[in-house]
Amino acid sequence: MSVHEKMNFETKQAIKNAFIQQVEEVGFERVTVKNLALVAEINRGTFYLHYSDKYDVMEDLQQELLKELERYVKHVQPLDAFQTLKMGQLYQPFIKVITCIKEHAPAFRMLLGEQGSPSFTQKVKMIFGSHILDRLSLIRKEAQDPEFQQYLQAFIASAILGVIQEWLDKGNENLTVEEMVALHFRLIRFLGNVVGTI
């Protein structure tokens, strides 16, 4: 990366960080380019070299996070995860997924919250649902039924995302990444045990 590219990258990150901060403080509607430039410690001309408006910043931030998240979610293999769990160990690919979310916690918290974007929430659900569902349909024939598949994908994605949102809303200080991963599998095991007793 050249010096110029590095400066461009750092400026864009400063704008995105300012955007997250401003949305959390005043709400998306009241975010202005003037305040973004002020918080990012740049002038408005520099802002316009990188983005056309606050909607452009929002779009870039979403794309960056979705790309990053998918990079880790695509390595999650449900069968391997359950085998690892049975051995009493934590599943490393899922640890990487949760670590990614923790590293970008302010951005995920903002985008998944009331001030965020419903389309972002849907795209995150799609990433979790489609990647995990693809692997499940190879393991269980039932998961190949198209109608069942549609609802199973919604169920898986909403369950994972619901737990993550709860963690983000609590400030994620109360649980480490490893504890968060363990909690996901505790919930799955609990549901499996409950179903087994019916």
Rank of each mutant, 00 (worst) to 15 (best):
P93L: 03
V195M: 14
R30P: 00
R30T: 09
M126W: 08
I188R: 00
Q115Y: 00
L66E: 08
G113H: 04
E64S: 15
L168R: 09
V195P: 00
G171P: 00
H75L: 15
G45A: 02
L136R: 01
L111S: 09
F94A: 00
K6D: 12
Y151G: 00
S130W: 03
K74E: 12
N193R: 08
T121V: 12
K123T: 08
A182P: 00
L187R: 02
L65M: 00
L61E: 12
T197R: 11
I156P: 03
G45L: 02
V124K: 08
K96C: 12
D80L: 15
L61Q: 10
V3W: 14
T99V: 04
F82Q: 04
G27W: 03
L79F: 11
E68C: 04
E68A: 14
E64I: 13
H75Y: 15
L111M: 09
V23K: 00
E70D: 15
I188A: 15
L136S: 02
L69T: 08
V57E: 05
L85H: 07
G88D: 05
H4E: 09
F108A: 03
N43L: 02
A107P: 03
S119D: 11
E178T: 07
Q92W: 13
G162Q: 03
L65W: 01
I156S: 01
K74C: 10
Y51A: 05
E10L: 09
G113K: 07
L49M: 06
L49T: 01
Q153S: 14
T176Y: 07
